Computed example of a mutant assay.
Amino acid sequence: MGRVFRYGIVWLMLLPLPFAAEAQKELFRKMDSLSRIPPPLKRGNQDSIRREFYNQTTKITFPVYWKLLASDLKQQVTSPFHAKPRLWYRTALVAGVTAGTLLLDVPISRNAVDWRKSSTTLVSTSKYITRFGGAYEVYTLAALGTYGWIFKNEKIKTTTLLATQAYITSAVIFEAAKFLSGRQRPYYYDPETNTNSPAWHGPFYQFKKDANGNRPDSYSYTSFPSGHTCLAFAAATVYAMEYSDRPLVKIASYSAASLIGLSRITENKHWASDVLIGGILGHLIGRQVVNNYHRYAKLKSEEAAEKKKNSLTFAPQFQFGRWLPGVVYTFN
């Protein structure tokens, strides 16, 4: 995925966010207040993912899309500051697994390159699969969204819109992580050290000039985390959760995302730890986007139900040759 495309799409999609955030402070407050309540999807309750749940009340309109997107990004950025103790235990576990993977980055990369050199089938297959973590995945989402729009399938439309939200917020977060880490890609030989080690150079190394006054290729220092893998798992998690009542959708989604992640290693574009963290990050982002939408839908449904309670209706009646005032008070 080209740098111009990545940066362009992120900033283009984020332009309306300040306006959405300003207009919906109260909505954000309510949604965030529910963030500590486990969403129904975590409890195995299938009621909130049935097709009839996606109606006019919970429909994602253009303004709602941006409001949810702003809320998603806010919650994702601030979530580490609101984590419960049990989440820190999981974080420690992930950190331990990542540390072990870091030690294996170089041998895994070398074996992947050797395997690639000895198999023409792997070369062609790997190139094909890795494209689905970039432009091809965008085409897939567009096709699914178009199908939902043509055949008026609100659930597919809603799921695809949520997948694009996971896609956008993932891009924002992993691009920031890439910039801050400045990790060297496995295929690149640093002109300063003349090595292709998995070094971490930090955010300012790409601005450093060599003896000739030239700056290094900044793209070669954006290895961590894997953006392709992050995007793939973010979208896969959305579809897997929204169609959790269909095991084949979950299997197909996560299998495709895993193959994309592995292809980034066989393509020698990423270290194994880049792919691991990219997958975990994408999964967490996908879960947050889905759960946030269901919190929103829950609030909207409760709001619509509240309007129907104890309603006061004026109902004039024509009796005895003249109109008489009438009032109907409905109890629920």
Rank of each mutant, 00 (worst) to 15 (best):
G182Q: 00
S71E: 08
R110D: 13
S119L: 15
A252C: 11
F132E: 05
A297K: 00
L14C: 13
L14Q: 06
A92S: 07
T130K: 02
R264W: 01
T266M: 05
R185V: 06
N268E: 13
T160G: 14
V10Q: 10
T121S: 14
D245M: 08
T146C: 14
V106H: 02
A20S: 14
K59N: 03
I277T: 00
Y147S: 12
G286W: 06
P16D: 05
K74C: 03
D217P: 09
L27M: 10
R90M: 08
M1Q: 06
P203Y: 15
K127Q: 04
A256C: 11
F132P: 02
S35V: 10
N45A: 10
Q317W: 09
A20I: 04
T120E: 15
A135Y: 06
G145D: 03
M241K: 03
T146R: 07
D47M: 10
L276M: 11
N153D: 13
G182S: 05
K208R: 11
M241S: 03
S126Y: 01
N214C: 05
T57E: 13
P63V: 00
Y187N: 00
V327C: 05
R215V: 05
K308D: 15
R50V: 04
Q165K: 02
G286F: 01
T159E: 10
K117S: 12
Y89S: 14
H228L: 09
P216I: 07
T222W: 08
G227N: 11
A235T: 04
R90I: 15
N332P: 08
D32W: 06
E52H: 13
D210Q: 08
E52Q: 13
S79I: 11
T158F: 07
R6G: 05
Y7W: 13
G321M: 08
L141K: 06
I129R: 02
L17W: 04
A112G: 03
S218I: 07
T61C: 04
S170K: 00
E175P: 07
Y147H: 11
L262V: 14
E22Q: 12
D217G: 15
V4T: 11
A211N: 12
T57S: 09
W323L: 12
I156V: 14
Q76E: 03
L281W: 08
A20W: 08
S226L: 02
